[in-house]
Simulated assay, not measured.
Amino acid sequence: MTEQWALLWSQRQNCLHIEPVDHWLSKNRQAYRDNTSLNDYQPLHIGDRATCEATANSVRATIKQRDGCRVAYEVVG
């Protein structure tokens, strides 16, 4: 089975983040156990890494419009 990745978007930071779904869910379960809020990242797409990167590329113009010239894009893993 192909590893699943999550494309996440932060409104507060106006940036995108890609990481393996199992890593993302593990952090969320830890936040639940600790009864804390992890961050404001929202999932935009879950799929293989290539489709997450393609989706990130398709929304990059909107991110750039919202924040002038700053565009953040981070890949973990």
Rank of each mutant, 00 (worst) to 15 (best):
S10F: 09
Q42P: 05
R49H: 08
A31Y: 06
A50Y: 03
Y32E: 14
A54S: 03
G68F: 08
S58E: 00
L16W: 03
L16Q: 03
Q4M: 14
G77T: 03
A54W: 00
Q30D: 14
I63P: 05
Q42L: 10
V71Q: 00
R33G: 12
N35H: 15
S10H: 07
S37E: 15
D22C: 09
N39S: 09
S37G: 14
N28C: 12
V21M: 05
R70W: 10
Q65C: 08
A54V: 00
Q42N: 06
T62S: 07
V75Y: 03
K64H: 11
N57Q: 04
D67V: 08
H17L: 07
N28I: 10
C15E: 14
L16H: 02
G77P: 03
Q4R: 14
K27W: 10
G47I: 04
D48F: 06
G47M: 04
V76S: 15
L8W: 04
A31P: 07
H45K: 02
T2D: 15
V59P: 04
E53W: 01
Q30M: 14
C52Q: 02
R49E: 07
T51D: 01
K27G: 10
A54C: 02
A50H: 05
N35A: 14
G47F: 03
M1F: 08
E74P: 09
D48Y: 06
G68E: 10
A72M: 11
Q11I: 14
S37H: 11
Y32T: 09
R33P: 06
A31N: 07
V76M: 12
T62H: 05
Q13E: 15
D34S: 13
